[in-house]
Design a binder for these strands. Sequence first.
DNA 1: TCCCTAAAGCAAAGATCATTGCGTTTAAGT
DNA 2: ACTTAAACGCAATGATCTTTGCTTTAGGGA
Lengths: 183, 183
Amino acid sequence: MSATSSPARRTGGRSAAVLAAVRSAVEELVQERGAAQVTIPMVAERAGVNPTSVYRRWGDAASMINDLATYRMSPDRPLPDTGDLRADLIDWAQEIIEHFRQPAAAAMLRGGAAAAGAGDSDCLRNRRAEATLLVERAGGGVPVDDVIDHVIAPIVYRVLFRPWSLDQADLAADLVNRLFAGR
Amino acid sequence: MSATSSPARRTGGRSAAVLAAVRSAVEELVQERGAAQVTIPMVAERAGVNPTSVYRRWGDAASMINDLATYRMSPDRPLPDTGDLRADLIDWAQEIIEHFRQPAAAAMLRGGAAAAGAGDSDCLRNRRAEATLLVERAGGGVPVDDVIDHVIAPIVYRVLFRPWSLDQADLAADLVNRLFAGR
DNA sequence: TCCCTAAAGCAAAGATCATTGCGTTTAAGT
DNA sequence: ACTTAAACGCAATGATCTTTGCTTTAGGGA
């Protein structure tokens, strides 16, 4: 027995196939029925996988959905950089709106909101970090908290409680412009 | 048989007792375990009520939580009426902030957010109705959607994701004042 | 290529949830 | 006070989810 014993996970081949099938199934079902109505036996059937495999890997439906939905909005994507803070914020807000118009993304946000009591949603922590970056790059001028309160918060509110209102034309611009009103 | 037959709902007495017991049980359990882990048999047991009664009245856990979250803040309470829209909105916002500083109220909001999924249920619809009333009484001047986006949404966001920031001094005034900036 | 074993599949048992029919209680109207 | 039926409680049933022991498959290092 060698001293360095690596457990030797098996992430390729069959395991990867199961993961892919489950991911597709979850996304479809979340979109069709809403995250709360998605069960593990349901996902397993659509994925053509044994329910036991899913139970063993994720434990319960909430963990599974949270895990699979997390990868969506990349933290490494390039941020808008036009040289104009207002334009950058509008582009950025628009990206976020588009993101949350995907039902799976909205479902994850709901899950994050429900679980936020203990551990908080890193998805939104990233948004705050991005806002900070945008603002600081422009040399300040708008408090980050104001961006959260008046751009992110309205979007999140709409995602959670009035998803249809995300389609409103010029939403991103309207929200951002209010930040600069009376300055 | 008289022509006008009123269905004669029975909202008092025993029904009211059941409602109160269920409400308390749901608030406790949502706070303890999170909305996703709350089931109807569980609620019924803690409320000392038969599960069937709960199933008959609400149908499923999500509807129940959403319903109870919606009506926690009395819809009959008097709204601020100083004659000045801005002052009224600040008072009103302050009330809402105080309300959601109660952990049980915050937990119910999380539950409402998690259960909202389908899109037909907005546990904050009463707040919207109140905003409409305040604004219309003052003869308009501020769109109701703006009140939602820039006063309610920031409060809700903070309740869900950054509860400690509800203690910020002058939060209500700051939010409302931005509504009137540049007008 | 040959082991070793992580991970998937299978099947049965147990737990929990959800529905339904029927009798009982009791609020509301006369 | 009497009547009516809305809402509740109970119990049995069916559906669905979850766990568990065992077997089979196949990834990865030697």
